[in-house]
Write a protein that binds this DNA or RNA. Structure first.
Lengths: 331, 331
DNA sequence: ATACTCTCCTTCAACGTTAAACTACTTTAA
DNA sequence: TTAAAGTAGTTTAACGTTGAAGGAGAGTAT
């Protein structure tokens, strides 16, 4: 590898002068500058970021900590984080914790040994207290999608306005005239999604009795089971709201298997907008989480923290409704 | 941050001795070793990998270069690469080229400035010649999924035995008695997938005329269009083979829209096994690419190259058939 | 003429770690 | 008893870069 010393020799100056040319610091005469630049070009010199990192105490490296990149929720976020980070000269280290929160602690340690400049931690990839310990050490970090009420209130956080998401779903069903609704939700994790929905119904003067709320665990299977249960009761819903898309899809499958038509006999709405929802038959009406915006807010906040610019430390991104073919007006 | 010098002071030895304790090199007395270890534990010392990287010329960092992690084909591979790399003490730098092959060149340069120890390059993320230039410089790297015939034959390569994949699809349809087949393929990229299929048919004594082969571009829409075209001709296929799942799904949608039943009137088989295929209705019979195995072979080969262990530099992983609900015996 | 300033470049030391070379002491061998 | 071999450390220098301090020379002001 060609080093700054090689360039200096070739240009007949000292390494410091070359460094000044590269970084625009110091003061360098025009002719010398040109000679140095020629030498750099000729030798194909690239500054060594390891040495520079050691000297400057800054590695231009960020870490993206998440449960698993194989979970289809994260890749799009990762892509956007990487894109924006690179615009600012940073690279992203991937860190899949595989939801093993205990070694998650050691993983954070090993990242800090690399002098990363900051990290983005996705919900539930590491123990909250471990994350907070790092924050206290002064490592710039942003939490992303941590359930708001569990968060240490002093830590930078970006999440989704889930209550608004629930309200959007409710508003859509209300506009279609559905007053008899069943709900499939994962509690307590989806509390905001549920509350936003129920509050909107209450404000519209329609009561959702607790007996119309069924428990799921975010899997398709749990959505299927919940709908079967629901249909066994004498409640006759004309619409179902599931707090995520997988459960909504499970519910549709159950309804179809029970001989109901979707959306004619039963409207179903989900929340997330996973890729499958667009291609499922019938395609799923859902409330979309703006992942790229989420990523953008998180990385922007992190870069502000690193570069010590003033920044709000709490952001909520707003979801939006995506109407497809699983909802229709009440028969 | 606490450094090796702090530990040395606390233990009453020189930094070198601490280094010897950490790395198990040199020779250190039992009592001294214990004192040093106690000091390390007490101060919570973590070796600085930046400084170590500079000194040793090794950063324990690999890069994973791909078009975009948002493409659902890659996350599972990335997850496995990261998992295995970390078992060996390496971290993974993510590098989305966004199929911009020109800046791809600069991206590689910036990675080399970081002294990464090696990289895995996914097909079509960078210009082949740029990649080869890096290989010539001695940077350990493995190509993954590059169409075999385009590859520089001297470069380490891991790919899928696509001809066998095509043959598996053919064998399945032959066993179901389908002699009238239509093919939707992307050429020339999917040449092996096509050849494997056609060869198997030929060997079974069934000729597939060129007129039964339709062009697609790997998108769902192109699969849809191809099937519509196909049905307009007087060829009456009872089965369709698409060289990827998206086109197969597009074909199914077209068939359903044209009033055909799938699989009763028309069997459809794909290739890839993307996540959607399992949840689509009808779920798609397809030939699966073993992504985790692919990842494992690539990272294993790369680690062998880095650590200068003998290793084959060409691997093909074997696909396998996944029978679901889009294929049935010929009516 | 002397002091001051400015520009341009060099010297020096440091970031944290670690191999190589060296020293001091102990043990073993002939 | 002396040499050889081993053990347990230390000293030194280096990885590649850069900020601070310093110096040489030219230009300007008094």
């Amino acid at each position: 590898m060609v080093t700054i010393v090689d360039v200096a020799h070739k240009a007949g100056v000292t390494p410091t002068t070359v460094s000044y040319v590269i970084n625009g610091s110091g003061s360098v005469g025009t002719k010398t500058r040109e000679r140095v630049q020629a030498a750099i070009a000729e030798l194909g010199y690239q500054p060594n970021l390891v040495a520079r990192g050691l000297k400057r105490g800054k590695t231009m490296t960020l870490a993206f900590v998440l449960p698993s990149i194989a979970n289809p929720f994260y890749p799009e976020i990762a892509d956007e984080v990487d894109r924006i980070a690179r615009l600012h000269g940073y690279h992203i280290l991937l860190c899949n914790t595989h939801a093993d929160r205990t070694p998650g602690h050691e993983q954070l340690e090993s990242l800090v040994g690399r002098w990363i400049d900051g990290l983005i931690v996705m919900a539930s990839s590491v123990e909250p207290s471990d994350v907070h310990a790092f924050y206290d050490r002064g490592v710039p970090l942003v939490w992303c999608l941590w359930p708001e009420d569990q968060a240490f209130p002093d830590m930078p956080l970006v999440d989704v306005h889930f209550a608004a998401a629930g309200a959007l779903a409710a508003q859509h069903l209300l506009e279609l005239g559905h007053t008899q609704v069943g709900i499939i939700g994962e509690l307590p994790n989806h509390a905001h999604r549920l509350a936003g929905f129920c509050d909107a119904y209450t404000q519209a003067g329609v009561r959702v009795p607790p007996s119309h709320i069924f428990a799921g665990d975010s899997t398709m299977e749990s959505g299927y089971r919940a709908l079967v249960e629901m249909l066994a009761l004498p409640m006759h819903p004309t619409a179902v709201y599931a707090t995520n898309d997988w459960m909504a899809i499970g519910a549709i499958e159950a309804a179809l298997d029970q001989g109901l038509r979707v959306p004619e006999d039963l409207a179903v709405i989900g929340l997330d907008d996973i890729m499958l929802s667009a291609h499922f038959r019938p395609s799923l009406t859902t409330v979309a989480i703006p992942k790229r915006e989420l990523a953008m807010e998180a990385i922007t906040m992190l870069l502000n923290l690193i570069e010590k610019r003033p920044t709000p430390t709490w952001k909520q991104v707003e979801p939006h409704l995506v109407v497809r073919h699983s909802t229709l007006p009440r028969p």
